[in-house]
Every structure is written in structure tokens, then in C-alpha cells.
Design a protein around this nucleic acid. Structure first.
Lengths: 341, 341
DNA sequence: CTCGATCGTGAGAGCGCTCTCACACCCACG
DNA sequence: CGTGGGTGTGAGAGCGCTCTCACGATCGAG
């Protein structure tokens, strides 16, 4: 059944022999076929079909110095990546956008915290033509390293200091998202507002908090009820519990990710608060989770798939030779009103 | 890591020159280093570190005929893959298990239904050393094709007819899962039982239904209340609505995946049924979703990560030269009791 | 000592492909 | 009829690596 003997793969040489032309002509015929006579082209096509020929990528890559593959670099450990519905949405957009190309996706997931050195070494060694970088924490060290690499790349999410660290990136309009959440809660009469923000070392979290704060201040409300979570369910549970302890009179909460928001709903229920009657909750993401909670989440929708697709498009531009456009493309967000607020 | 020049990558040749030995010796020193004197080894190590040398994979692959990468073949379209928490759990296990090796993961997601021809062509062309195949539908065509390829591979989920189609695979004990769900519902006094099963063309769905039916029959209960869904939320909603229409007196439901079970909870609520008071619900998977629903799901836990890890281990055995063990490894499942049943 | 075995080493032949270059051929133009 | 400029083609030189093979040095056994 599974033969131990790996089948012999046909080479360019053999195609050339069968087609009755030279290797060079076959190569031309296969790659876009400029300067190839119709007869030669037809003969090659026939031979290729007959032999079931596919070019050997390694050999081609050796001379062209291209690999026809790009990396998706995930500085998180696998667990975190895969349990975040937003990130999997981005992954979906990436695979969709790549489907129309010849490029393969190599998944480069961090093995443990602080594993970026290994990942960078891989990128530096010419194994891929470009890289997509998702979900980056902390300072802009990674962005700086990537810039030094001289490899085309695109970030998902802006760097912390986009003025001094100029990299191409795609981001959601997180500031406006925070503002939309605030305005909705204020507009529906809530006055004791609080937020479960994301990690203070992620720009997405900072921006959402920023928009939130500004909207509250403009409305003359206090914006000091803030607890941070790490965007996960467990982190959301802990943060929401702290929030209720410190601010028991809260009547409206903006929770900066859907996983954390679903956790917040559980905590509120455990504390005997009704949602939305006693406390209104607004989430962020609008992933699958938002529709499965009770009550369904009112949440700020960010377009995860489109996020991934745009990242690929910006990378393709660079691979086609355009200089990287330093700076970001900001995708719009939108408030989706369901029942939790 | 100093200049931003179009970096010239150091070659074996240069390492050899710096170390004062021949290319052959450097090659030996880098690959396991048998038959290399300690002095030579040390000189090479020093040169490698100094130059920041990394072997060119394409060149190596060209001669060794190995690529040091494996494919994760997803016959589903991206959307489906990424929105299934079980599959993302498997992906996590795969990346974890691969982390300890030199192997890279190439994601091969179907571009559209019936795209397997393209995927098979890719596999056949020697671009990867092996393949992991997840979530396969329908007949055993793909399993047969894979067998013919002569490429090491492992399936996630058994083939439909494991006796005539002998392939290596990892699977959960789905039959027992269906049984556990049934026994729990019966044991808590439910008598009007129904199930939302998975697609009839997936072995996992068939097995869960099988175990369920057998347990019901052994208890002398009717096992004819069955609706099929496609494992997604939307599919679960539609199936649960049909179920309630055809069997309005149901008091216990086994829903064959967590996404479908979360949908079932919504439908039941919309129909004014209380869970678990009026209707008890048991899900399958025990993914993140199971804890975010109201009430939290009682569900059959299948070890998604372990599933992925075992697949990798079985593939590694083959890559190391062992003949593929035709037949399956069945992972145990476990009932997790929460509040929905 | 002599002899064969063992060890560390380097020379060199490719792996399958692309790409430059030279060349033969054809056509229009003066 | 030359001449110049296309156009299609093939020969051949590598890309960076591994691996076989031959060779001198070393060593223990006889």
C-alpha cells in the first residue's frame, strides 16, 4: 500500500527529452513562456501532462533565491494563538488571500515566551520570501528587528510608537471602537461606567482604552474604573471580579475582547447582577462567541478576516517590488447591538 | 545584525575558509559531526557563530531529497477549519509537538470544495516530507489517494471503512462518547431522548450516533429522534429547530459538537424551554465554548491537543523509518458534568 | 618492524533548476 | 543584395549543499 520506494519524480530534463526541445526551452515554457514558439509550447505542455511533471521547488529556489512561501509569525505560544477567535479569524483571511497565489504559508509559532530569537533566525536564513507578524506584545523591539532583516513584512496591529518605528501594518480602528462602546453605554443612560481593558503592553488594548476614556471625559464622566485582563477568558474572569469588588455600583462595562466579555457575563451572573438590566456589557471583536452567550453580546465588530487579507495584500505589493509603505492601514469598526447592552 | 544592506548570507564555503577546513568537514561538523576531530569541530563552531551561518535549506533539500517540513492538509475551506474550536485545538497540539523538532509546518487549506486535486499534486511533488490530514469528509477517496502517494502521512479521524482502507490514524473514542452522553441523560431520569448528530458523511458523527443509539436501545428506549447538523453553529440552530418541531416532548438532547450545542441552547431558550429543568443538553468537544454558554455545558471531552500531538508522533515514527502502523490509535473521552444536564 | 584496520580529511561530482549568452534564422528596409 | 534588428533556441555555467571515494596518518596486533 504505502510503498517504501519513493516514486521517481520526472525532471525538467526528461520533459525536454519527451518534448524534443532543450531544458532552457522547457523552463521558458513553464515560466510564463515569453519567447517560446507555439509549437514548442504545445510540445512542452503535452510532455508535462504526460509525465505529471511538477518543478522541484528546492532546485528552483536555489537559483532564483525565492522560496514561494511566506511565514505567519506568531510571537504568542500556540495555546494563546489558537484560543483567540480574533487571531484565528485573521488566519482565515490570510489563507483565503494566499489561495489566489502560488505562495505557501509556513506557520511559525513561538515555542515558549521569548522565543523570537529562534523565529528571527529562521526568517533571516532566507527560508521564506516575506513574513506576516501577528499579535505582538511589549515594546517595539520585534518591529525594529524585523526592519533590520531586509525581508518584506507586514505587522498586524500598529507598533507602540508608529512615529519612530515606521513599519507597514494593518490595524483596526481601536480608538474609535472604545469610543463607540462608551457612547452606546452613555446613550442608553448608563452613568457608572467601567472597563475591563486589555494588557497595557499591547497597542490594541491601549487604543481601545484611549477612545473609551476620551469619550467618557467629553461626557463629563469619570474614567478611572479600569481593570486589565490578558484578553483570555480566565483573565477576563479575574479582572471582572476585581472590578465588581472595587466598583460595586457599576451599571455599564466595556470589556475589550469577546472572550473576556463572555467571562464577565458569567461573573456578573455569579454576583447576582442581571445583564443588561443591572449592568450593561459591551464586548469587542464580534466573533462566534458573541452570539453564543446569554444574553448575546453587544460588541464592537472588527473585521478579522479582512485584517488578514489586507496584510497579505500589503505583503504581495512588497514582493512585487514596491517599496514597503511605512505606516498603517486602519480598518473601520462598527458597533453591533445585541442584548447585553 | 548591524547593517540594513541586502544581506549576503554566508555559505558553507565561507565557513570552511574561516575555519580553515574543507567544505566536507564543515558539512560533517554541522550535521551530527561523526568522524570529526574535536579541533575541527571547535573551529567550525566558532566560524559558524562568527558568521551567523545557517544552512541553505533549498540547497540541502536538493541533495538530501528531504525538505524538513510537513504539511497540515485541511480539506475544508478555511472558514470551516478556523471556526471549529476542535480543529484549532488539534492545530495547537500539532504546533506544540512539532516545536521539539526541526520540522516546519506548511498549512495546506482547501481553496474551495473539491480542491483536493491541487493539494494532492502539491504533496506528490516532494515539497514536504509528510502530511497530517484533518477533518475529512465523505468516502475514503482521499485516504486511498494518500496511500498511493508513497508519502508518510497520518489521518485525524478514522476512515469510513478502516478494514479495507488501512491507513494510520488517530481518533477519539466517539462511540463511547455517544454512549456516555446517553447514559448520563438516562441516569438523570430523562426518557424522551433525542440527538443532533453530525454530518452523516463523517465517521466521527457516525460513531457518536452509533454509541448513542446502542446505549438507548440497551435501556429499552427509542433512538429514532435524530436530526443532522454540520457541526457549525448555524447548522446546529437549524437542526435543533427541526428537532423541537418533530419531537416537542423531548426532555434530553445529545448534541454532537459544542458549537452546535451552544446553538441548541439558544434555540431552546427562544422556544421557552429551560435548561436543564425542561430539557437537559449534553454537548461534545469540551472546548472554550462549553464554559461560556448559559448554563455551562455538560459535554463529552475529547482531547484535541493530544489528538494533534499523537498525529505528529505517529508521523515522526514514519519519518524515522518505521513502517506506518496501519490502523488507529483511539484516544479516550470523558464526560464533563456542568450545569446543562 | 610490518601490516591491515581505522580515522580524519579534502577533492569533486552532482542534485534540478534558471539565466546569460551566443547563434541561427527570418523579415523588412535602403 | 547587403544590413540591421528582432525571435526562438540550445549550450553551459552555476546556485549551496551532501556524499562518495581516495588518501595519508595513526595505531594495535603479529
Amino acid at each position: 500500500m504505502t510503498s517504501g520506494e519513493p516514486t521517481h519524480l520526472p525532471t525538467l530534463e526528461e520533459v525536454a527529452r519527451v518534448a524534443g526541445v532543450s531544458r532552457a526551452t522547457v523552463s521558458r515554457a513553464i515560466n510564463g513562456g515569453s519567447r517560446v514558439s507555439p509549437q514548442a509550447q504545445a510540445a512542452v505542455d503535452r510532455a508535462v501532462a504526460q509525465l505529471g511533471y511538477t518543478p522541484n521547488r528546492a532546485a528552483r529556489s536555489l537559483v532564483t533565491r525565492r522560496t514561494d512561501s511566506v511565514a505567519l509569525l506568531v510571537p504568542e505560544t500556540g495555546a494563546r494563538f489558537v484560543s483567540d477567535p480574533f487571531l484565528t479569524g485573521v488566519l482565515q483571511g490570510v489563507t483565503t488571500a494566499l489561495a489566489g497565489t502560488e505562495l505557501q504559508l509556513v506557520l511559525l509559532v513561538a515555542q515558549h515566551a521569548g522565543d523570537t530569537a529562534r523565529q528571527l533566525r529562521y526568517l533571516r536564513s532566507g527560508h521564506v520570501d516575506g513574513a506576516l507578524v501577528t499579535s505582538h506584545h511589549g515594546n517595539d523591539e520585534l518591529a525594529l528587528e524585523m526592519s533590520r532583516l531586509g525581508l518584506p513584512f507586514v505587522f498586524g496591529g500598529r507598533p507602540f510608537d508608529p512615529d519612530s518605528v515606521a513599519v507597514p501594518y494593518v490595524d483596526a480602528d481601536n480608538v474609535n471602537g472604545g469610543r463607540l462602546a462608551a457612547e452606546h453605554l452613555i446613550g442608553t443612560g448608563r452613568r457608572r461606567l467601567a472597563t475591563v481593558a486589555g494588557p497595557a503592553d499591547m497597542s490594541a488594548a491601549v487604543d481601545r482604552l484611549d477612545g473609551w476614556r476620551r469619550a467618557l471625559e467629553e461626557a463629563g464622566l469619570h474614567a478611572d474604573a479600569v481593570e486589565h485582563g490578558d484578553f483570555t477568558i480566565d483573565g477576563g474572569t479575574a479582572a471582572m471580579e476585581r472590578l465588581l469588588r472595587h466598583h460595586p455600583d457599576v451599571d455599564g462595562v466595556f470589556v475589550a475582547s469577546d472572550p473576556m466579555a463572555s467571562a464577565a457575563l458569567q461573573v456578573l451572573r455569579n454576583f447576582g447582577r442581571r445583564v443588561p438590566d443591572d449592568v450593561a456589557v459591551v464586548g469587542f471583536d464580534d466573533t462566534m462567541l458573541a452570539t453564543t452567550t446569554t444574553p448575546p453580546l453587544t460588541t464592537v465588530r472588527q473585521p478579522a478576516e479582512e485584517h488578514g487579507e489586507r496584510m497579505v495584500e500589503m505583503l504581495l505589493e512588497q514582493l512585487a517590488g514596491s517599496p514597503p509603505r511605512l505606516g498603517g492601514e486602519i480598518l473601520p469598526v462598527e458597533l453591533i447591538v445585541r442584548e447585553s447592552a
